[in-house]
């Protein structure tokens, strides 16, 4: 009897480790792809250590932001988000804050969802993608780097008399790691003053104010303190986050921290965020997809 129970348990564990299509159990105890330091190094090669894009904008402009689409087979909410963004002439670009896909090998489906569709969409405005923890499952980093690009990068929104800075971070493992943190510290301290606004984007959260995701990890407390001080001292305008599937708008040390909820097809009320960027800062407007 005991032997049978042991055999069944072993078969169950092996099945979970090998066959599960949506949860990479192995990642609970060991990294599922390159560790964050390695991903950072590869990202800096991929982004050429310079801004990946310079988007021309007006002095006041709009940015569309969504998070956690978790694309599996369908992507109607994400496609609707892209269409609404690309049919708005004031929307300069969009951002997806990570967790793009949910199953093995579904990143191409995500790319299909954000593709410019000429028949439905009028302006081919860019959409920037962050990496989330789900994008790392099943050694997903190689596919992400190949199909999307770096997980750490920055771009500029340039208007007639100045520029805004957008920084995308790789927090998919719940920590920025040594190299990314050292780079971020130096980058913000030397570059921030050149820009009107600085908007930092990360998938996982600095703060844990609700429990909708129960045990889903964010950053350790020491890292929260370090980042909060760095952002506060360098006058970061806004920190955008996903991961938590719950809308939140917080303020600490003069910095605004906003969590964007999921836009996944299984959610009951999919919504996204529209940022109105002006000289004063960023105004937030939440919009239902449907």
């Amino acid at each position: 009897m005991r032997k049978m129970v042991r055999t069944i348990a072993l078969v169950l564990v092996a099945t979970l480790l090998i066959c599960c299509e949506s949860i990479d159990i192995k990642g609970l105890i060991m990294p599922t792809g390159d560790v964050v330091d390695k991903r950072f190094e590869r990202s800096m090669v991929l982004n050429g250590n310079k801004a990946v894009a310079r988007v021309d904008v007006e002095e006041e402009y709009m940015v569309y932001v969504c998070a956690d689409p978790h694309v599996e087979g369908t992507y109607k909410n994400l496609r609707a988000f892209c269409t609404q963004q690309r049919n708005n002439r004031e929307a300069s670009f969009g951002v997806v804050l990570g967790d793009c896909d949910n199953l093995r090998n579904t990143l191409p489906t995500y790319l299909e969802a954000i593709r410019f569709v000429e028949e439905e969409q009028t302006i081919n405005s860019p959409i920037f993608t962050l990496i989330g923890n789900h994008d790392l499952y099943f050694n997903g980093w190689d596919e992400f780097a190949e199909l999307i690009g770096p997980s750490v990068y920055w771009f500029e929104a340039q208007y007639a008399t100045g520029c805004d800075l957008y920084i995308a971070l790789d927090s998919a493992s719940g920590t920025l790691g040594h190299k990314q943190m050292a780079w971020l510290r130096e980058f913000i301290e030397t570059e921030r003053a050149k820009y009107r606004h600085c908007i930092v984007m990360t998938h996982t959260n600095l703060f844990y104010t609700d429990n909708t995701q129960l045990g889903s990890g964010n950053m350790p407390l020491e890292e929260t303190a370090t980042l909060a001080e760095l952002f506060s001292k360098n006058n970061v305008t806004l920190c955008l986050q996903g991961h938590d599937h719950f809308r939140e708008d917080l303020r600490l040390g003069g910095v605004r921290y906003t969590i964007v909820p999921t836009i996944g097809d299984t959610t009951q009320r999919p919504e996204y965020l529209v940022l109105h960027i002006t000289n004063e800062g960023a105004e937030l407007q939440w919009r239902d997809v449907w």
């Binding site: 949860i23 609970l28 060991m30 493992s173 920590t175 950053m219 350790p220 890292e223």
Partner: peptide
Amino acid sequence: AGMFNISSDY
């Protein structure tokens, strides 16, 4: 870090 994200790291 990230243990319960199932994307753990040192």
